[in-house]
Design a binder for these strands. Structure first.
Lengths: 158, 158
DNA sequence: CGCTTTAATGATAATAATAATCAATTACAC
DNA sequence: GTGTAATTGATTATTATTATCATTAAAGCG
C-alpha cells in the first residue's frame, strides 16, 4: 500500500515541481530519514543508507540533505559539536520550531513541544516585541537547553 | 589607574588560582576582547591581536579561547555558519544566558537582555518543568531568533 | 519502447575551522 | 638568579563539508 501520497509519499511531485528528479539515492535517503526517530548526522545517515544501498556516495548524502533542507523537507539543527543533524520536518508544522534538550555529555537530543499555551503565547509576543525593538524580520527561532541527561548524571541523582 | 581588580583586571589571580600563568599573549587577547563590543571569531580576534602583538600564533588564540571559555571568562556562541564566536562574559551575570537576534544574511548579531520580568519568569518556570519532565539537569540555555536585519531587508521595508 | 537532454551521481580533491605535536621559550616560586 | 613546568609559535593533522568532473540515468517525447 503506497500510502496517501502515492508511490513516493508525494515527494516525487514535490521534486518534479521544482525541476528536480526523484532518484534511487534520494528515495533511499528519504526512507531512511522517515524511519528514524532521532536526529542523524550526515555520516550516520550515510552509514544507515549504505547498508541498504551500498553504492551511495557520501557527497550525495550531503547534497541531498542540503536540497531537502532548502525544500523544507528536513530540519537541520546544530548542537555546537561541529556536526549538523537532520530530521524529517513534521508536515503539520506551519512554522518549524526547534526546541531541544541537549545532553552536553552524550549529545542525546530530546525534542520537546510547547507544553503550555502560555509559553507559546509568550514566545510569540516576545518575537513581535523583538521585531519592533530591533527592526528585524524574524524567520525562525531556536531554543536549546543544555545539560545532563539522567544516564550521564549517574543513576544516583545529582 | 589599574582599575578595581588590579594590574590585569583580576585575571592574574584567577589564572594563578587554577595553576595557569598570565602571559603576554593572554593579556593582549583579554585586552582585545575587552575593548570589543561585538562577538569575534577566532580569526578576527587573531587579526586584531596581531596588529598589536605581531608575534602571536593562531594556535595560541584557539588555545586561549578554549581556556577562557572553561574559566567562564568568555561566552562562546554558534550561529550555524561553522565559526565559533566569542565575547567577554558579563561579570554580573549569575548564569550566562545567550539570547540573540541573528541576521541570516549578514551574520549581524544583536544580543538582547530579557526586557520583561514576565519572560524571565516563564523561562525559569519552563526550565524547571523540563528538568522534571525529561529528567535533565539543565546548565544553560540558548535562545536565538534568526531573521533579516533592517539593512538586509532593503531600506524600503518588507 | 528507444532517444535525447540534462540533472544527478560517485570518486576524489579542495576548503576551512580547529586540534594535536613538539622543540624552544618564559612565568614565577624559591 | 635558577629550575621547572606551563606556554608558545610553527607546523602538521583532523574533521566536516563543498567543489570538480567525467559518467550515469531520470523523464518527457516521439
Amino acid at each position: 500500500m503506497p500510502g496517501p501520497y502515492g508511490k513516493h509519499g508525494g515527494y516525487h511531485g514535490r521534486f518534479r515541481g521544482k525541476g528536480f528528479r526523484m532518484t534511487i539515492p534520494r528515495q533511499v535517503i528519504l526512507e531512511t530519514l522517515n524511519s528514524t526517530q532521532n536526529y542523524l548526522t550526515a555520516d550516520e545517515l550515510y552509514m544507515n543508507v549504505h547498508s541498504e544501498y551500498p553504492g551511495i556516495g557520501i557527497a550525495t548524502v550531503y547534497r541531498t540533505l542540503n536540497l531537502l533542507e532548502q525544500m523544507d523537507i528536513v530540519n537541520k539543527i546544530d548542537i555546537g559539536d561541529g556536526k549538523a543533524r537532520y530530521e524529517i520536518a513534521k508536515q503539520d508544522e506551519d512554522v518549524p520550531h526547534y526546541h531541544q534538550l541537549v545532553c552536553t555529555n552524550c549529545s542525546r537530543i530530546v525534542r520537546y513541544e510547547h507544553f503550555s499555551p502560555e509559553e507559546k503565547e509568550l514566545m510569540q509576543k516576545v518575537e513581535k516585541q523583538l521585531e519592533e525593538a530591533y527592526d528585524f524580520k524574524i524567520q525562525r527561532h531556536v531554543v536549546q537547553y543544555y545539560g545532563l541527561c539522567r544516564d550521564c548524571r549517574g543513576l544516583t541523582g545529582r
